[in-house]
């Protein structure tokens, strides 16, 4: 509650790992991942995994925020240092994004033609597309975005 520290997000990630472990790590899930086998999750497993997902997201965005915005804000403008390496990484990621998008469309066509729905693969590819977008946005903000820290009056005339 004092600063934008990396400690709580790190603990959140550890807690998320623990919750996922409690919820689902047994030998059966590997067999389940190999195809669309209807199998129920218990309400306890769903609850543990829902909290695990929130802690995972919280931990990740907390560490990203610490990386991109720092532990404390200081008023003023901050300009990034130009560099070639992030540009190369960006180009590679955009190529990966294009390949994944093409593969995802191919996967949908395959499912429509055969009636076979490999949900784990569909989720994996679509999820990967979204995660690549998140990394691209992170690279943009870290290496190309001009940052500004502002202060404002407590009283404002918005929204009324």
């Amino acid at each position: 509650m004092y600063r934008n520290d990396p400690i709580l997000p790190t603990f959140a990630l550890i807690l998320a790992a623990g919750l996922f472990y409690m919820a689902y790590l047994d030998g059966l899930h590997i067999a389940r991942l190999l195809g669309h086998t209807p199998e129920e999750l218990s309400v306890g497993q769903i609850g543990l995994m829902a909290f695990g997902a929130v802690f995972l997201l919280y931990g990740l965005i907390g560490l990203v925020s610490y990386w991109l915005e720092g532990i404390e804000l200081r008023p003023g403008r901050h300009f990034p240092t130009p560099s070639t390496a992030p540009m190369v990484a960006g180009v590679i990621l955009v190529l990966l994004l294009t390949a994944l998008s093409g593969f995802f469309v191919r996967l949908l066509i395959y499912s429509a033609q055969t009636g076979h729905n490999p949900t784990w693969l569909q989720g994996l590819v679509f999820g990967a597309i979204s995660l690549v977008v998140a990394v691209l946005l992170g690279i943009y903000k870290k290496f190309y975005g001009r940052d500004e820290v502002v202060t404002e009056e407590e009283k404002s005339h918005f929204p009324w």
Binding site: I61, L137, K141, G145
Partner: peptide, 22 residues
């Protein structure tokens, strides 16, 4: 931009979970 990163992380991680664990 931070909200965009979080939204993309949300969609990415939750789709992975949704696909693997119906």
């Amino acid at each position: 931009v931070m909200m965009g990163i979080l939204f993309a992380l949300y969609v990415g991680i939750m789709t992975l979970i949704a696909g693997a664990f119906l």
